[in-house]
Amino acid sequence: MTDSPRSSPSVPRSDTLPGSHADESHHLPGRFAGYRAVLASRVRSQRSYRSNFAIDLASSALVGLIELAEVWLLFHQVTVLGGLTFQQVLLVFGIADMCNSIADLFVGHCDTLPKYVRAGTLDVFYLRPQPLLLQLMTSDISLRRVTRAGVALASLVIGLSINDIHWSVGTVGLLVLTVFCAAAIFSAMYVWAAGLQFFLIQGAEFTNAFVYGGRYAATQPAAVWSTPLKVLFGFVFPMALSAYVPALRLLGLPGPAGLPTWLAWCTPLAALWIWAFALFMWRLGVRHYQGGGG
């Protein structure tokens, strides 16, 4: 095979003129330059229609507020649900909805895969020298979710300040770990849903039950769940582990049957598991699309 010119880049040699920054242009663009260029263009394009963007931001904030109001209404009827007060549930809601909004911001478009398939965008991804899933994940970004994440962040901050939390290096560490892992867990939910939709054209209803059902479940105290639900949204899709169990740990409360609070430190494992599942589903879906024994 003959080398194409770009596979033998003219690397700027150290003996070129000192301080010749002009030679920068001889560098190959970095491995991530392509992804960055796409994402930057998405950001520009969303912000270029100012009024539209403002409406998007406002409506997304409104959705976040309505979700929060729903929780508040529930606690208007009962003072304690699943062993938690409204003040304490703010913490669960804050972590869960913020991390989910972050995941939605970056990879939420993945579960609209059938649209990519119909428009032929997916076939175009095949023509580019990048992994398909990374291309899909970085093909868009939903900036409007920022405001919804903001509502959740406010709820989290209020939850953290009005509850009686014994602050230590451990609790701060746990909070940071939880936020990262929960965002990863929710991202994985969008990815496996995308993989499954290779099989189920018009199958969004089915995956939505888990993705958005899971999203809702994550904001609720899992103590009130039946055992099958605890298995499904506690471990298979680790929703309870993403916010509820860590919140209990932060508050120093005991966990319900089946969900001891030491599990709060196991969110990285839960994230690994759901990502492994997501990548497996994605591979299965791609194989099905290509007809290679799917």
Binding site: R6, H26, L28, P29, A33, G34, G120, V124, P129
Partner: peptide
């Protein structure tokens, strides 16, 4: 593909080229 586009429908043509050059990691010059 006559029926599907590799360009970004909401971007100017030149920007699509710039992004594709980055994706293919073509040196600037």
């Amino acid at each position: 593909f006559g029926q599907r586009s590799q360009l970004w429908w909401d971007l100017p043509v030149r920007e699509s080229f710039e992004i594709l050059a980055a994706i293919h990691r073509l040196p600037g010059p």
